[in-house]
Design a protein around this nucleic acid. Structure first.
Lengths: 247, 247
DNA sequence: TAGTGGTCTAGACCACGTT
DNA sequence: ACGTGGTCTAGACCACTAG
């Protein structure tokens, strides 16, 4: 009834914060899988010897971070990239006009293996020269290639991954990471700039040389702020743009 | 003790949601001013005839939306753009290298009045031809102009605003809206794309013609999703970029 | 009908800032 | 010492889903 009694010291961590950490650990260890329900609030309360209200506050925060999803009357579930709903969490580009629904697809253009240079090693917190998987991929709207992605993955985390697996997989890439490798992307950081189209981009996107493109660098993380993927994307913003809300 | 009893109907609004609306109304009407404290949770609880916990939940959400700011031991305050802390809430551009602190300033280049064309009228929910104030403004980092803003304001909301007021004001533009006109920007939506530099941009930013620039369109809102400002910005991203977190 | 999350209450106690 | 927000509890009742 009071882990907090062990914690009168300088840095005070509330009970619900400790519960949050315990729940996150169970998630990271795979005790509860994406898409599956976690135990009810009452069950967790008795398991951790706290009140339902304390568990509730921990779950509230995890739900706010899109780690868990609450469904009234049904239970609390581990968030998953498989749900169609979450497609736009990590795809902030959409069409500029009207609200037509575009069919969105991804095409794998190139697959190879290589080693981390200084920049990628820094971003992914790897050692320089660590083995990487490198993908070149295009996102199409209405079958027109709009975004070109150069994607870099630590080979150690994705053993056995190959081009055929990616091409044949029906969902998003993050859904593949989750279902095939148990790696759930929880959050990401992006840096945007305007760049001139290079040859790779003109070929893949069908734009003129030096056309202005929206350049996006992204580091994607899993539980515990562990970086898992780095990508550099270039987007043709003639008919599409990047949406953002400032709160 | 139960406004909610009036509300067994199809759409159910919890008590704390109603309290949230009441608090927001007091804010919009100026009963509590930016930077000032609102009444304590206990005071509000007795004022609204609900428990402290219900007021607490309402305030929690408003604090999550950056409408209010909690300070333990001191009270709950109306958020303000005057605080240095909030400078970066609406400025997502920063330097690319190291973590040097750049002196950031704004320069007014041009001031005029005009009428709303179709696009601006739509964005600001005005009638076509409504009176506007138009600003051309540059944001400088280390005294170098990096971002050029074309800003459009409904003249009806900013009576008497002129170039001298803006140039002599020491804080951010949103701080000026707040202190001089009682209009607090609460949130905004942005659309980003890559564009080629036009003459206005080459002159103000010192880049080559057709250089790729990051184009940002923003609609800024006050309480009740009321649009108050529209701006189109162009940013030189050679040494700076736009940061974003995806949750 | 039973089980889940969602709301609301009342009260105790803690952490923080000010007086 | 006092008042503020922050945490935690225990219990009642509501809303939603499913068998």
């Amino acid at each position: 009834m009071s882990i907090s009694k062990l914690n009168n010291a300088p840095s005070f961590t509330p009970l619900y914060g400790q519960i949050k950490i315990l729940i996150t650990q169970s998630l990271a260890l795979g005790e509860w899988r994406p898409g599956q329900p976690i135990p009810s609030e009452m069950d967790l309360a008795s398991r951790f010897n706290v009140s339902q209200g304390t568990v509730r506050k921990a779950i509230d925060e995890l739900a706010g971070e899109n780690i868990l999803v609450r469904r009234q009357g049904k239970g609390t579930f581990v968030a998953t990239h498989t749900a169609e709903r979450s497609r736009y969490r990590f795809l902030r580009i959409s069409g500029i006009k009207g609200k037509k629904e575009y069919p969105i697809n991804d095409v794998l253009l190139h697959y190879k293996r290589g080693k981390a240079d200084k920049e990628i090693a820094e971003r992914l917190k790897l050692k320089r020269g660590a083995a990487l998987i490198m993908l070149l991929r295009a996102t199409t709207f209405s079958n027109k290639p709009i975004i070109l992605h150069s994607i870099y993955l630590p080979a150690a985390l994705f053993r056995g991954l190959n081009g055929a697996m990616i091409s044949s997989y029906p969902g998003t890439l993050y859904s593949l990471y989750e279902t095939r490798y148990g790696i759930r992307i929880t959050h990401a950081e992006e840096r945007l700039r305007a760049v001139a189209a290079d040859k790779t981009a003109t070929d893949a996107l069908g734009v003129k040389p030096n056309a202005p493109l929206l350049g996006i660098e992204r580091v994607a993380y899993t539980y515990g702020d562990k970086p898992v993927e780095w990508r550099r994307s270039r987007c043709n913003t003639d008919q599409h743009c990047y949406f953002n809300k400032l709160g």
